[in-house]
């Protein structure tokens, strides 16, 4: 298993997803891949973080120590971002979700630093997150608008009795999860490919200086893409809430 997951500095270039073992899923053969294992590791880490945070905040002190400071900073900053983007009505509904995907995508993106293959470099992961966003957008849309209003929006530049623009608006709605997921996937994958090429082709020469590449490709790019994904999710969802 460790050979498949760890991106060791061998002579071969290796950035593909490896199947570990097949399982029978309602008569179909489904492979458990390294992406599943990496997602599980990230999720266990998040779970541990959540449990530790819960225990910590139960015994919260007035003068915060290291961990409490960190947790309060994270929650406060993200609450600020969510409230600033979504407004007072929508923000309390979605802030837990945004915090969860923020932590998940960030930990996934930087897991390349710890020798894992980032789970977000698998299109299955990012497409499912894009589809969750798509579902949330349309649940919010049908909750907050009447059917007549939605129809008017879908025929938007022309009057509602002339639905010539309807197919084009439909395509632009369907393009939302695809562009969201491809953006995240391609960014993380390009970082993974470049690091695999550096380690695979240079071998022994890649000693200390690839740390700079890791800082840019894993940390900087990963953080920016996390922010972009959460920001776009919030913007798309809050379009369906009337401004207060």
């Amino acid at each position: 298993m460790s050979n498949a997951i760890l991106m060791s500095s061998g002579s071969d270039i290796d950035f593909m997803i490896h199947g570990l073992f097949p399982v029978d899923f309602f008569g179909n053969e489904v492979w458990i891949t390294t992406s599943h294992v990496c997602i599980l590791i990230v999720m266990l880490l998040m779970l541990a973080l959540g449990v530790v945070a819960n225990i910590k905040m139960r015994h919260a002190t007035e003068v915060p120590d290291m961990l409490q400071n960190l947790l309060e900073l994270l929650v406060e900053k993200l609450d600020g971002i969510v409230f600033g983007t979504m407004g007072k009505i929508a923000a309390p509904i979605y802030r837990n979700y945004i915090l969860t995907i923020f932590v998940f995508i960030f930990l996934s993106n930087i897991s390349g630093l710890f020798g894992l293959r980032p789970p977000t470099a698998d299109y299955g992961t990012t497409l499912s997150m894009g589809l969750i966003t798509f579902t949330l957008i349309h649940v919010a849309q049908f909750k907050n608008n009447s059917l007549k209003q939605i129809w008017t929006d879908m025929c938007s530049p022309l009057p509602p009795w002339l639905p010539i623009w309807f197919p084009i608006n439909l395509i632009s709605e369907i393009a939302v999860p695809i562009s969201l997921s491809l953006r995240l996937f391609a960014n993380v994958l390009s970082g993974t490919v470049i690091m695999a090429l550096v380690y695979g082709l240079l071998g022994k020469l890649a000693l200390i200086w690839p740390a700079a590449l890791h800082v840019y490709l894993d940390l900087f790019s990963g953080a920016i893409q996390t922010y972009v994904f959460c920001m776009l999710t919030m913007t798309y969802i809050s379009q369906n809430y009337a401004a207060e």
Partner: peptide, 24 residues
Amino acid sequence: MLLGQAVAETTGLYGLVIALLLLF
């Protein structure tokens, strides 16, 4: 600026995805 740049980057990444698909 960073948000706008990251969104503008998407079209280039589509090209990258196509190239990687073709190669691998």
